[in-house]
Design a binder for these strands. Sequence first.
DNA 1: CGATCCGTTGAGGTGCGTCAACGGGAGTGG
DNA 2: CCACTCCCGTTGACGCACCTCAACGGATCG
Lengths: 242, 242
Amino acid sequence: MLSTAAYQQQANARRKASCVEVSRTKTASRDTMFPDAEARLAAIGRASARPARCTLFEEGDQAAAFYRISQGVAMAYKLLADGRRQVTGFLFPGDFLGLAFEGHYVYGAETVTQCRLLGYPSGQLERLLESCPELERHMLRLANHELLAAQQQMILLGRKTAEERLASLLCTFSRRQAARGEADNPVWLPMCRGAIADYLGLTLETVSRLVTKLCREGLISKRGHQFMCLEEPKILAAMAEG
Amino acid sequence: MLSTAAYQQQANARRKASCVEVSRTKTASRDTMFPDAEARLAAIGRASARPARCTLFEEGDQAAAFYRISQGVAMAYKLLADGRRQVTGFLFPGDFLGLAFEGHYVYGAETVTQCRLLGYPSGQLERLLESCPELERHMLRLANHELLAAQQQMILLGRKTAEERLASLLCTFSRRQAARGEADNPVWLPMCRGAIADYLGLTLETVSRLVTKLCREGLISKRGHQFMCLEEPKILAAMAEG
DNA sequence: CGATCCGTTGAGGTGCGTCAACGGGAGTGG
DNA sequence: CCACTCCCGTTGACGCACCTCAACGGATCG
């Protein structure tokens, strides 16, 4: 197990940045979940905390629970036999994780920063879904939304240049921050370059070089390694769309 | 609009190949949909036929209906502003298409071969889903399954070599044929090289070269342009997983 | 028989990966 | 308090897997 020191530091940096404070109530209100469904889901949730850079579960593990991030950042990934990794998504407060197929997780997950999670035991969630169509409808909407994001990631990975990929990441993170009720700028990237690279289908060196390039061109500016200020959001957005 | 001649020919080739006959009853039985839900869904379905290489809808169009392929092959794709295309999936008999967000399709779709479709008008489907939790549950399972496929496509696009991508495609198509109750070999590829390339994140030249290479190596053999016989399925499967 | 589309093949170029070195910040131990 | 180590990010030199551009052949159709 790797040292968590560097990640702890990132978490500290995170806490100090007032612009990215997370409101817990926001999480509930932005979902269109009905109060009843929400309450019943909350009733079976079990809170827990995890340190930074900690494995939550691995692909193929018996799926004991479905999770929701209440604080912090996590990521989901798939591995090839020889260790190549594809990060399939970064999870922020309010996001669910733990998709399973035939009782086994279909991807691995680990924390990026320290996290607080709500765990919903599989059996209980299953029964709740059967007895609460509204919750089921919500989950269906959620799955469809993830499907949409997955398809956007496909065009990114299959057809965009490295520069367009980075611009896409910055714009997407900015939008997601706004959707969580935070400032849309600067963008917070608590994950290391290697994780970003594995998300964008690049190498960490290429990501690093592109960050430098966008800075040189005045499109972004760095506030430490984790915060990127979008100086030209419109140009970046245009770049992201080809 | 391009000529449909070449595709018509493909459709003819398809009909002649007995190993890929589609059983209509299979489609229903392999789904775990409950008879009641199935029947109610069927009640709102409207059958239609489309020629090969025909646009079904474009990304951003008002989502009038959700579709299910009953015969033939179609594909879904997303485009970048400058025309680069990413094929997000190929659809075979039994598959659904028409994912929408806020009333608009999130991807475009066109037929590959001539197709027969069942269309479910959005409003009616919406109401049916509300009144039939079992159907909703089925749709949720379906969405989760698609999510799984999408994530496998992400690792393909982000981390696999061109050769591994082609091997993955062949293995996946073979498995899908078996799942539809057809022979798992030879693999039928009714779409043109360009479409395969746009699915794998490659160029059509690279796909063509790799097909030639796998043939030379004895891993596959061609039966015309559309049928590929997997001579060494295990080696191909190992190649697909890295 | 010409036009068109598709697949194949070759020659050459390039975007990004690979390998390597370096620097800075944080933790650790003396 | 200062070395020392470990990680991470950055930068440079170089190579290659795949892309680009181009030509050609076969099949189909009018």
